[in-house]
Amino acid sequence: MEPLTLDRRSAFHDLRLRLAGREGFARRADGERLHPVGLPDLDRLLAGGVPAGTLIALEGGGAWSLAAVLLAGATARGLAAAVDDGSLYPPALAAAGVDLGRLLVIHPPREALAQARAADLLVRPGSFALVALAAQPVAHSLWQRLAALCESSGSSLLVVDAASAGPQAASPAGMRLRCEIEEGLWEGPPGHLCRLAGYRVRVVLRKHRQGRIGAEALIEVRCEGVSDGDSLRPHPILSGGGRLGDARREQRRAVAAAGASGAVGGG
């Protein structure tokens, strides 16, 4: 019996789609496959979803929350992988809906090159819909190589906290998203009865083939079991009493903007 080759698998897949009369993913006019994220605002921002076979760079605060959402979508479709540099927090991934049974976690040495090599090995076969990697300070050529591997294999590589790796990771990326935690959401009176209910993350499109550069989407990130409505305090309050003034709000925006402009300069 002759084994089934990859070409035959592909032909078999096309035949099956024709028979079923439907596709499990959206497809742009140019043939690019898209995987919808599942969050309407974000899908609109991304003109339909996350393209397959792309190096995706996430920057700024809240990037890991968005990465967890993308990983959850990937594990719902198939398999995903994460290269752990020692700070991966699986309970947060599980809370975001990631199927941990389908997430391969690799623990290579913590040196930047070893981490990048692990990503290379995971992206190459195309078995994982998405591979997550904390950004590493490696050479530009290495990021280019990883981007080319993504394109040839169909796997996407998610580089989180990409700004920390400097401009090297940003330029080969097919998609760049700048995240910013806009405000924390707190529930209950200050003290031990208070708890973090979540936060709002503003996502700005910095680089994309189809989407409108500079467009924004707001994602509300919520802890499990948090009630909706009036009990949440989206405007931070000083624990010693007093409301955060406009000056402090401006200060926060200035700090965030400074971070953003740094990333622009880097890119």
């Binding site: 968005l66 959850a72 719902a76 198939g78 947060a92 979540g198 936060y199 499990e224």
Partner: peptide
């Protein structure tokens, strides 16, 4: 597991995604 939960059910799961705070 990946073979069991593909197709229409997977798309239903996509809709059920819930962004959660990520403690790093």
């Amino acid at each position: 597991s990946a073979g069991r939960r593909r197709g229409a059910s997977a798309r239903a799961d996509d809709r059920a995604l819930r962004p959660a705070p990520h403690l790093r």
